[in-house]
Structure formats: structure tokens, C-alpha cells
Design a protein around this nucleic acid. Structure first.
Lengths: 356, 356
DNA sequence: TTGAAAGCGTTACCAG
DNA sequence: CTGGTAACGCTTTCAA
């Protein structure tokens, strides 16, 4: 048809630069069969093709290094095999563990993972979801910022809504009050348990390092902890609650700030994430305070590095990789109504909070 | 709140489930213009469209929550804005730092990052590149396994070759002997410098923890170190070179193995990556040996957590995020011939290797 | 079992 | 400035 004359002559000169893409058409021609047959062999029901042709097509494809144009397939089929993942940052063990789980589940289901980083910016997150939606992924897994500012939230919900309306599947991780599938990490309960355990160990005077208000995870963990110690009639002094960036650096800064304000009598610092807690420990050490000895420290998440620091960090275990896995599976099992899958958390006491 | 009235209304015709995707056609019709015009407004040169129509289209698009079908665009335009990244594992700070750099550069260039995890399996890596090729990304950045087994390597090269022939841009990180753009980390030189510095500190008896042969990075770092100490007439006892998984767990296992074999007189253990080195330290500590005091430990990469462990880990700094950044930029600047961009490494002495 | 041809959602060229 | 209409690469009826 259009090949004889239509195609820009090239045909043989194609050696050097900017070679044209090899298309199914090329493969079919090389194999001496129709495009339809080639298509059937290369993916569809291979059943109804004569063995000889199967071989010819396969050979031709290999010969030409053919790789099917996924976009073309997507458009023809009306669906892709992409799983989209939105995280706040790659560099953070919290997210990379979840990402590992998502990747694992996705690949098991034959999906390709596309991952976008929102950098804790709600606007960026919104924009990302918009773009992602354009890829028509089978699944969007959102984990991260979960800011509860009204505007940003509503816009995001609308975007996700539109995506789902069009047949997509959304799963949120840890944000449990939006009308989508959710894998819910028990941040409040875990922190509360932790508080109880620490009081049980003999601690009475606490400081808290938290992230900026508006970050749900931080807020829940913080209030869980505060209310947990309050059960025992203990109040956390407002002045000893410091707010910092949700990162190692933030933890460092917070610890320095605490030292500056005067720790007077504080026995234990609870940081709302291990990443921050580790920063806190390092900063204390730099300030001449031995963590676990001069001052106890506890975190949340139980990320891998928690046991590499000295003393090992007391934390609340969250099976992050499991979370990613479950989230993806939940998304794939296109369930009817928005479901909430709870994930339990577990206090892990270690040397950073010795009994008093 | 947002569900009360907004959501349930439901366009009218559309049944409850599986709503059709909104297409450009719909937008055009709603705006009362042709598809061509709508297309021009929604992305192409907005210049040549009457303001009134621009508004109408924009309004309609917003109204309908339209999101352009990226696959359709890709196919019509003949190009995508996808950057593909292949790593060995997400959960490893080495890769996630590089990924952070790649993401940053890609997003700056308006590209979406698709990331695939090869899990250190050459077969998986090959398969991944095949699939990725189908997405017709603008760029493929490969970082990781770099096995030098002939077969796997050749197959990979062929695949990448085909990709480039078709107009794609490949960048390899740290594998410097393949005919593609490469960001080359000076593993050999860095390890050698480290060896010199350690000998300068007074160390004479070394053990080495390396990954399985076949992993280039490991091999180069190992031989750089060994040859570095040999400059001073020091040999590393074969029996004190142990091979382990390229991970924290591998480091632990290796350290235990060393203890089992008998450290007799070993003053310092060099692990070919920080991740392993941290595992080594933890395992030593568990075995009752105080790292930095009873036995010195050094790593490679200078990942963030290196300064969180006690004692802080001596290492060789590799600007990982920079590496990712440069790699992506290199790929984007579609240069003519394969270029090699060297990245310098820097010895960082810390408390885990006190002067003797 | 096979091939022709009609889409799929966009873009881009070409007349008006 | 605008609309009609051919692509783009593939899948999938529908006949043969």
C-alpha cells in the first residue's frame, strides 16, 4: 500500500542516523504475512496462527529488533499496563520502602511502574496527577503529603475523581477520609501505644519533634503520643513541642532548637518519624549529649537504618513494603466500593529508650 | 463536604460505572469548535487562535475534566516526554540518590520519569529494557548491575543499540566500556586513594568485603583498594577477602564470616559500599567488637546515613545526586558521539578509622 | 487460519 | 484564524 512510493526513500541508507522505528508493518512484510497475523503472533491469541507463520513472524521480529509501540497498543486496546506511583520524595527510606512494595506487586501483575515525585508540594502533586491521568494508568497509588488544606485537597479529589470516573483505580496510603480505596496506617494508635510503653518504662518528661501542621501523618502521630501520655496524667509541655522539616535535617535542627530552649529535665524525645529521630540523635551527639544515656529518643516507622544507629532506635514498626504491596493489590482487584485496609503498627523497644 | 452535592450529580447519560474517557472530540464539540482548534488551544501554538475560542475551549476542557491522552499524543507526534530509569533496587540509598538526581533533571526538562527495578538480575534488566523501549522514551538512564558476563552483556547492548538506532538516547552510569554516553564514577581511583589515606593513618592489615565477582563496581573498588595498599608493599590476605550480597544484610553476613575465619590481627575492614559497611559495623558490634575501637571500618559512596552511624563512617564520597543529574542532562543534550563524563570521588576520613 | 479495513485519540498539513 | 482530513502504529472485527 503506502510503502512502495510513499515512504521517504531511505530504505537502504538507514544505516547511520535517526533510523526509523521498526513497526509491526515492517515485521509483517519481512515475514511475508499480513499485519493482522503478525499482531496475533506477537501478542494476541497465538492459537489461531499456523505454526510456520508463527516462526516466520518471531524470526522477523527478532531479526529487526522489533519492540511493540506501547502507546499504539494502548490506544488501540483502550488500556495500558502502567501503574502510577506518587511519592513525596525518593530519597527517603519511608517512601522507597513503599515503592519497593508497589514495584513488586506491580511487576507481579505485569505492570510497568511510573513514579513521580511531588517533593511535598501540594501544587506539584496536583499537577502530577493531572499528567499521570494522561498516561491512562490502570492504577494510581498515592502516598505522601496528604495535606489537609481545603483548596489543594478538593482540587486533588476532583482530579482523582475524574480519573476514577474514567475507569481508573485509585489507592491512597494512610489518608483515610477521602472517598477512595485506602491502606490506612494506624499512626494515631501506634503513637499512643508507644507512649504507654515508654511511660511503662519509667519516662515522665517528654519532648516532641513534629513536622509542620497540615501533614496528617505528623499530626496523628503527635496527637496519639500526647494523648497516650495524658492517660497517665502526664502533660507534654507546649514549649517542648518543636516543629521542623520532615527529614533528617529537620530532625537535626529540631534537636538543636530543643537544646537551645533548654531541655531541663526532659527525659525522652519522640520524633514523629525515624528519619527525623536519627537526625535528632546525631544532633544531640554533636551537642555532647549521648542518646540513650543522657537523653532517650524514639521514632516512628522502624525503617531499616533504625537498627544501624547507636543505640538502636526505639520505634513503631510499620510494614512499609507490605503497605505498598497491599495498596497495589487493592487497586488491582477492582473492588466496588472504596475500601479501607487497616495496617497494624507495632511498638519496638530498643536501646535508645532504656528502662529508667 | 466535597461529596455532598458535587460528585453524585453524574452527567446524566453515563451509567454509574466505567465512564468513557473524555476526548478532545468531546471538548471541541462542547466548545463549538473543530477538533483541530481545540488541539491548538490545549497545547500547540496557542498564538493563532482567536481569544474567544481559546476561552471557550479552556472552559470546556476544565468543565469536562479533560486530560489529553498521552499515548495518542505520542503516536501522533512521534515522540514522548518520558525519561526511563533502570535501577537495581529502590530501597538502596545508592540508587535512590541517583534517582533523585534523575528525577530532578527530568522534571526540569518537562519529562515524566518511569522507573523500573531490575533487582540485580541481568535477565530482568534485559526484559525491562525491552519493555521500556516500547514506551519510546526520550531517554534511558541505566544504573546498576553492569554485570560483565558476555552473553547478558551482549544482549543488553543489542537492545540498547536498537533503541538508539531508532532515535533514542542512552546513558550508562558507571559502566565505561560500552559504546554509549557514560557518566563514569571513578571507583578504582577512589578506592586507591582511600587505601593510601588509610595506610597514611597507620593501618597495615586489611580485610575486604566485596560483592560477587561480575559486579563491575565491586570489582573496581576492590582492585583499586588492593592495589592501593600494595603500593606500600602491603598485601591483602586472600583469606580475608570475603564475598557477600551487595546489601546491608550481605555486609552483616560477611562480618560474621570474618569473625568466624578469625580476624587475627586485622586492623581495618574495607567494604565496597557504605550499605555493606554499615552492615559490617552492626554485625561486629553484635559480636562484641566496637567498630572504630576494636576494628576500623571504611566504606564507599558516602551515602547520607554514613554520618548517622557511630562511629561516623569513613568513606569515599560520590556525588550521587549529581551523577543522576548529569546523566540525564547528558542524555538530553543529544550529543553526537558517545561521551564519557567522569565524576570525581573524594576520600572522607571519619571516626570509624581513627589514626593508629 | 488469514487478510482487509475500520477504528483508537491526537497532531499537522492544507486549503479556505 | 479555522476546519477537514490524512497520518501515527496497533488491535480487532468481519469476511473470505
Amino acid at each position: 500500500m503506502e510503502d512502495g512510493a510513499a515512504a521517504p526513500v531511505r530504505r537502504r541508507g538507514e544505516a547511520v542516523s535517526e533510523g526509523r522505528q521498526v513497526t509491526l508493518h515492517d515485521v509483517a512484510r519481512a515475514a511475508g504475512v499480513s499485519q493482522a497475523t503478525a499482531s496475533r503472533v506477537l501478542n494476541g491469541s497465538v492459537r489461531n496462527v499456523r505454526q510456520e507463520n508463527v516462526d516466520r513472524v518471531l524470526t522477523a521480529a527478532a531479526e529487526l529488533d522489533y519492540a511493540p509501540h506501547l502507546s499504539a497498543q494502548a490506544i488501540a486496546r483502550g488500556s495500558t499496563n502502567i501503574a502510577a506511583l506518587v511519592v513525596s520524595g525518593v530519597d527517603d527510606p519511608y517512601f522507597s520502602s513503599i515503592a519497593a512494595g508497589v514495584t513488586q506487586a506491580a511487576e507481579a501483575a505485569g505492570l510497568i511502574v511510573t513514579m513521580a515525585v511531588a517533593d511535598r508540594s501540594p501544587e506539584r502533586e496536583l499537577q502530577i496527577v493531572g499528567t499521570l491521568r494522561g498516561m491512562r494508568p490502570r492504577v494510581i497509588v498515592m502516598t505522601g503529603s496528604r495535606v489537609d488544606g481545603a483548596d489543594a485537597r478538593d482540587a486533588l479529589v476532583e482530579e482523582l475523581h475524574a480519573y476514577r470516573e474514567a475507569g481508573g483505580s485509585v489507592v491512597l496510603i494512610s489518608q483515610h477520609d477521602l472517598p477512595f480505596h485506602t491502606v490506612s496506617i494506624d499512626n494515631y494508635g501506634g503513637a499512643r501505644q508507644l507512649a504507654r510503653a515508654l511511660v511503662g518504662l519509667g519516662y515522665r518528661r517528654f519532648a516532641v519533634v513534629r513536622a509542620r501542621t497540615g501533614l496528617r501523618t505528623s499530626r496523628d502521630r503527635c496527637s496519639g503520643f500526647v494523648e497516650g501520655v495524658r492517660e497517665f496524667g502526664i502533660d507534654v509541655d507546649e514549649r517542648l513541642v518543636v516543629e521542623a522539616e520532615f527529614s533528617r535535617r529537620g530532625g537535626c535542627a529540631a534537636a538543636r532548637e530543643l537544646v537551645r530552649r533548654g531541655l531541663d529535665g526532659t527525659e525522652l524525645v519522640f520524633a514523629v518519624s525515624d528519619v527525623m529521630a536519627i537526625g535528632v540523635m546525631t544532633a544531640f551527639r554533636d551537642a555532647g549529649l549521648a542518646p540513650g544515656r543522657d537523653i532517650a529518643v524514639a521514632g516512628f516507622d522502624d525503617i531499616g537504618p533504625a537498627v544501624d544507629v547507636v543505640p538502636e532506635l526505639t520505634s513503631v514498626n510499620v510494614p512499609l513494603q507490605q503497605v505498598g504491596l497491599r495498596a497495589t493489590e487493592l487497586a488491582l482487584s477492582d473492588d466496588d466500593a472504596p475500601r479501607i485496609v487497616p495496617v497494624a503498627t507495632n511498638v519496638v523497644l530498643r536501646a535508645s529508650t532504656p528502662p529508667r
